[in-house]
Design a protein around this nucleic acid. Structure first.
Length: 218
DNA sequence: TACCAGGAGAAAA
DNA sequence: TTTTCTCATGGT
């Protein structure tokens, strides 16, 4: 069994199963969350989402119609609110152009991915969040925690290449959306617990026994 | 007070 | 092509 499978087993044994993890009811809500969470803690995203709901703006047409300044103000708690207001509106326009969730489901996965990546403000991680958690497509989501943890374990290169690291997982795991979602959730759970200052260090890490560098992931 | 958080794009080198 | 800068709030 390779280290990728072992890591999954250890994380699952340590944290338990993490299913239905992305906190959204619809694929569109995943899209909104994916934009708002860029370089931002999820607690701040929740505040901004609640403000969208209060104004009845949690839909693509409503976001497109909302005055940009008012939309930005609404998104303030999630940080980078001017940038995110522009990105969210662009994403909503594209979402409608592509036929929303059903339109994207009707497309070939790679075509849907390219179509979303063409939006200014949707990068590879944001798009893959939508594909995996919104459309249940078997796409492994790579994030900063994934790179930090697997690099420090000696399994990923120092330089962060999104697609290279994604391919690393695709080559070693069966194409299973449920598995990918759970694995990503477990990585974040580990990251939140072990990749921050003043948190438990190497000896308490569930991946310690398969770490090839002897370095802490913290 | 300083640092960090579930990125991405533009500008500069 | 690669590196650096910018966007910004809220929690610890």
């Amino acid at each position: 069994m390779d280290a990728v499978h072992k890591a999954h087993q250890r994380l699952r044994a340590h944290f338990g199963e993490r299913q239905q993890w992305w906190p959204a009811q619809t694929a569109f809500e995943v899209l909104v969350g994916a934009v708002l969470t860029q370089n931002t803690a999820w607690t701040n995203v929740e505040r901004a989402m609640a403000r969208l709901l209060e104004r009845d703006w949690l839909s693509a047409p409503a976001i497109i119609e909302a005055p940009e300044a008012a939309l930005a103000e609404c998104l303030r708690p999630s940080g980078y609110y001017n940038v995110k207001a522009r990105r969210l509106r662009a994403a909503c326009e594209r979402w409608i152009e592509l036929g929303e969730e059903n339109g994207l489901r009707a497309m070939a996965p790679e075509a849907a991915r390219e179509a979303l990546l063409a939006v200014n403000g949707l990068g590879p991680e944001s798009v893959d969040d939508v594909l995996l958690y919104g459309l249940q497509q078997p796409v492994f989501v790579v994030d900063a925690y994934t790179h930090r943890i697997f690099h420090r374990m000696g399994l990923a290169p120092a330089r962060y290449h999104y697609h290279r690291l994604q391919a690393f997982f695709h080559e070693r795991l069966p194409a299973d959306a449920r598995l990918f979602g759970e694995y990503h959730a477990l990585i974040i759970e580990l990251g939140k617990g072990f990749c921050r200052p003043r948190q438990p260090r190497c000896s308490a890490c569930p991946l310690q026994s398969i770490c090839q560098t002897g370095r802490s992931v913290t």
